[in-house]
Each structure stands twice: as C-alpha cells, then as structure tokens.
Design a protein around this nucleic acid. Structure first.
Lengths: 332, 332
DNA sequence: CTAAAGCCTGCAACCGGTTGCATGTCAACG
DNA sequence: CGTTGACATGCAACCGGTTGCAGGCTTTAG
C-alpha cells in the first residue's frame, strides 16, 4: 500500500512483478476460478504491494460494462426527491455501482440533453417524474435499459406511486367532515402524478357529490402555492387539496396572509408527506413512498441489466391519507 | 438522424461514409482547425446522417479526460445539501461535465469507499462537509484534484461558509435581549462547521459575559433535536443555539411537548436557514450560502483542471443572522 | 524554375484492460 | 505405453477513440 506516487500503474507492472502475463493479472481479478490458487495469490500480493487498482475506464471500454447508472430528477431541491435519491444510491452501492445525478430543472429539453450526456457512460438510467414526451422516452429506452418512476409508459419498466388511493381517502375525509366544495391546486401539466391526482379528485368528488374546481400552477413550490391562494378563494371552496406539500405549505402561508384561519375557516390537504409535522398547523397529507420507489427502481434496473428479460413490469406502491391538523369539519 | 438501430456505430463507419481516415473523423470533432473546412463539413454531415455520437469511454481512455466530477455529501436528505448539489450541477452542466453523486451517510468509511470508487472515473472531486481525517483527505488529494466545502485543510482548495460571523451575531442578539445563560446544541464531532460554530458561541459568549453550556448530539436531525431537549432544560438556560435548522426544529417540537412556549419562555436559534419561514413560530437562524458554495466549489474545481496551478485557495463566504420569531427578550 | 515552407491527411502506435484461441503440462485411462 | 482430456497460462486481437510523425501537394520566395 505505497502511496503518494503519481505515475499510474497498469496491469503490466503488476504482471512483471508477479512474473505472469497481463492476461493472468486480469483474470486474477475477474475470473480467479480460471487460475490456480497459487497464481491468484501471487498476483494479488503483487497488486496489493504496488497499490494497483484496475482502471474502470479501460475495463468499460472492452467489456461495455461501466458499473454506472444515471438518475435524473426534475428538481433536487424539491424535498420529495432527496429520500428517493438516497435510497437509490444505497441500493446502487450494494452492487458497487456509481450513480450520476442529473437535474432537469423541470425542463424537457434539459432532460433530453442530460440523457444524451449520460447514455454513453452508463449501463442504464432511471427517470424520476420525467417531463419528456412518451415518444422521447421510448427513443431513449431503445438505446439503454431505462426505468421510470412516476410515469406510466406501456412497455417500459416503471415504478409508480399510486397517490390516487391516498387522494381518494382525502376526498372522502373532507366529504365526511361536511365539505361540499373543494379545489384541487394542480401541479405541472407534464407531470404524470398530477394527472393521476387530478383524476382521483375528480372521480371521487363526483361519486360523493362534491363540487370541484381546479386551480393551475406552473411549478410545484412554496411560492406557487402562495400565489394560488387568490384564485382558490374566489372559487368559494372551503377546502383545498394541493398537488404536493410544498404547494400546500405555500397555500397555508397565503391564507395566513389573508387572516384566514386553518383549519377553522379553511381546510388544506397536501400530498407526499415531505414536511413531516413541520408546518403549523401540522399538515394533513397523503403519505409518500418515495424512498421505496427509489430503491425499487434501482434494483429493478440492476435486475434488468443482469437478465435481459424485458417483461413489461409495472410496480405500484399504494398510499394513504395521514390526518393531522389542517382539516376539520365544516358546516354551512 | 436515424434512430432505433441497436448496433453501435463507431468512428470507422463514419470514416467510410465520409471517405476519409478515422483520424480525420476524430479531428473533425476535436480539432477542426487542423482540417480543411470542406473535410470538416463532409465528416460532420456523414456523422449527422448516421446519428454518430463519440464514445466517451474510449475518448476518456486515450485522453485521460472523462468530463466527469464527483460530489460527495454526508446526507442528501439534509436540506442543507440539495441546493448546494443543484448549484454544483448547473455549474458542471455549463461546461458539459457530468456529476457523480455520493452519499457517505455521515460515515468516514463509506466516504472513503466512495472516493475510491469514483477516483478512477473522474477528473476531480468535491467533498462537502467531509467526515474524513485530514490525513485521508490529503491522500486522496494527491491522486486527483480535490476541492473541499466546509472543511479547512491547509494546502487543499476549499470553500468555507463562515457561519462564525452569523453565530456571533446570534449570540449578540440573545445577549441584547437579556439572556444570560445559553446552550449550544452541537452537531457531529467530525464536522468542521460544528467546531467553528461551537467556537464562535464560546468566544462571543465569553466576551459578552454569558454562561454557555454544550449539549451533544450525534447526527444533525429533527429527532436528535427533540431528544436533546431534556438535557437542554436541565442546564437552566433560557435560549439555545442549535447546530442547524433541523436540530432546531426538533428542539421546537421537544419544547412544545413539554408545554414550554417559544419564544415567551425559551428562545431558539437555528443555523443554515434551510426551512425558510416554514416552522412555527418561524425560526430565527443564521443565513446559509450553500448554493453559492456549491457553485463556487465546482467552478474552482474546473478552473483547477484547466490550469494546473495549485495555489492554496481558501474561499470564504460570510453569513449573518436572520431574525424571525423564535427569539425574544428575557428578563429574570 | 527550384527549393523552402505550409497545409492537409493518412498511417500506425497507444490508452489499459478483456477474451477467444492455441499451447503446454500432467494425470487418468484403455 | 500411447492417447485423451482437463487444466493452467500465454499470445495477440480487440474495445473506440486520439495523436505524433511522415508524406504528398500546394504555395511562396529566391
């Protein structure tokens, strides 16, 4: 374990030190069962003594296996993603994979660019909440194994967090509390989750005889939620279900600005449960499974890389409502 | 721009299509000024038509330049880091660099392992809030260009967020409000920022004649803060400065559990301003410069890669106190 | 008109591993 | 005792680019 030397040492020096051919050194590391135990030991000793580490790049060039995967998310700063990223990392780590992280900034162009940059150096990629068109996703999937999170494209392996189940519970919860007119504060139009949540609100409200209005926002964020409050109020609704917790938090702030008390005068439900009980009042929200999603997506990808089986996999994680303190009964 | 074809196309096919040698194709992309404009055009056209993209791995092998950097953080889920990561990403993106992300999980061993895994495939690395020993950091820096964030090791380029300035303001603020006995709720012992903050509290408290107690925690988190409350109370202090906002938020919760009103009965100051005004009451805290730190570290690294100048760079970002609603005057 | 100086382009070696195939050794078998 | 086969190792080609050097052609100067 000598250190400090700058000159790179290659398989060749190790071969000379151990008195064998370069190929034997290679095999000592990659397929030791092909060599006599004695040779393996000699090579390993020599390598250790010199501090040799195989060059990943060279290996990747000849084998095509780089041991890298890429993970692209729309916005790292959105608290929904860090746990997902972290879980994916840990899973990758268990198989000695390195992960490239990309931030698309909610922009399909940027996402496309990133995929292109990564494609050459990874064995597979994961797109979380992709903002790309189905067509582009299919095109990329044709190049490399690809796993989607929260995006439902047929034929492409995907893990989906079914926020529908939780959202339905939320609507039922509000209906049970006596609300008759609610508003859904929507997220990005390109978001699959948004579509799913909007639909779930619509459907179950209809079934329960509630009136629903939709308020649009561009990007899910605190500020967007705050700005949406004006529109929310003019609808005359008594409760809002927000696309995500960040937006809900902004709504809470916007309502407070207007001296509207939550939950006394207005109820708010978030989605993704990323803030824990950190808001005030603590937020009623739909649970999230982002951690499991990240882990599942990564292991699914690794599995795919091993067995080229291309079954149409669709892994669904259900959610449920977490009732806290931003929802309360409403009487006319 | 043909697509769908699976077989990889190499510089050779392009060369044949354009009727030139492989080396000319290579040069058409990397050093067009060496070729006649006519040839460059022909090659580029052919490449375009076939949909050729240079193989990064092969390029990296022969040039040693991979166009990758690695960024290692102790905990992605800690809200201090995502903005930093994001800023670093964007900066890397501007130079067409890809970034590997590593999560050390606050564990020096894991961090060491990650550095090892990355070293072979990157041109340089950034260690944010490294938990490694100075010695290990120096060893790694000898292999590859390395930039530190929030870690002050002489001779190694580093960008430091000087939370000292903000913490001193915080102590002065509390003193000004009449507090005479405060407690510092410490973070990880291996954390440079923690050392810096603890020192700043100690020094300025001494200067202002305040009594200071220290309460230790292991990992900066909500739970750690909550659990620290018992110890905080037994000290008899009337205000706490927490290592970071997460810890502060936990303290807020722990105090609420015990029906201790903030700020009426007890004042709390956080650090890093990662929660915005999202806590209740909104948290008085020390501003953070994590975004700038990420950006600065990345551009510093890229600069280093270009000009092998190894000057001893130490880039410091000052912070200040953001007064919100968890601090208030205290009379005996 | 010839020689020197440029400009383009191609050849071939190289980056550092991996791997199919050939070779050599030795034990088991008929 | 000669064959056969298993096993261990080496040779050399290959992965897909990059780059120093040499050669051919054109331009400029003498």
């Amino acid at each position: 374990m000598v250190s400090g030397q700058k000159q790179k040492l290659t398989i060749k020096q190790v071969a000379e030190a151990a008195g064998v051919a370069r190929s034997s050194v290679s095999r000592a590391f990659t397929r030791p069962e092909m060599l006599s135990p004695e040779t393996v030991r000699r090579v390993r000793d020599a390598a250790e003594k010199l501090g040799y580490v195989p060059n990943q790049t060279a290996r990747a060039l000849s084998t095509g296996r780089h041991g890298n995967v890429a993970l692209i998310v729309p916005d790292i700063a959105n608290p929904f993603f860090p746990p997902l990223i972290r879980a994916a990392q840990m899973e990758a780590d268990r198989s000695d994979f390195c992960v490239f992280l990309g931030n698309s900034d909610e922009d399909p162009k940027q996402e496309d660019k990133l995929v292109g940059r990564f494609t050459g150096q990874v064995e597979g990629l994961i797109l979380a909440s992709s903002r790309l068109s189905d067509e582009r996703i299919r095109a990329h999937a044709a190049q490399r194994p690809l796993v989607l999170i929260n995006r439902d494209v047929e034929g492409i392996p995907r893990v989906l967090i079914n926020s529908g189940s939780g959202v339905r519970e939320a609507v039922a919860h509000l209906a049970g509390l006596g609300h008759q007119h609610i508003v859904y504060v929507a997220g990005p139009v390109t978001s699959w989750s948004n579509k799913q949540r909007r639909l779930a609100v619509r459907k179950s409200a209809e079934r329960l005889g509630l009136k629903v209005d939709i308020v649009a926002t561009m990007v899910p964020s605190y500020d967007a939620g705050r700005e949406a409050v004006a529109a929310i109020i003019t609808t005359g609704a008594t409760a809002a279900i927000a696309f995500d917790d960040l937006t809900a938090q902004g709504i809470l702030a916007g309502l407070a600005d207007r001296k509207i008390r939550v939950p006394r005068q207005f109820s708010v439900v978030g989605c993704d449960d990323v803030l824990g009980a950190a808001t005030y009042p603590s937020l009623t929200t739909v649970s999230n499974r982002s951690l499991e999603a990240g882990k599942a997506a990564l292991s699914l990808l690794l599995e795919l890389l091993q067995s080229q089986s291309l079954r149409d996999i669709r892994y669904v994680l259900d959610t449920h409502l977490v009732v806290r303190n931003t929802t309360i009964g409403h009487k006319e």
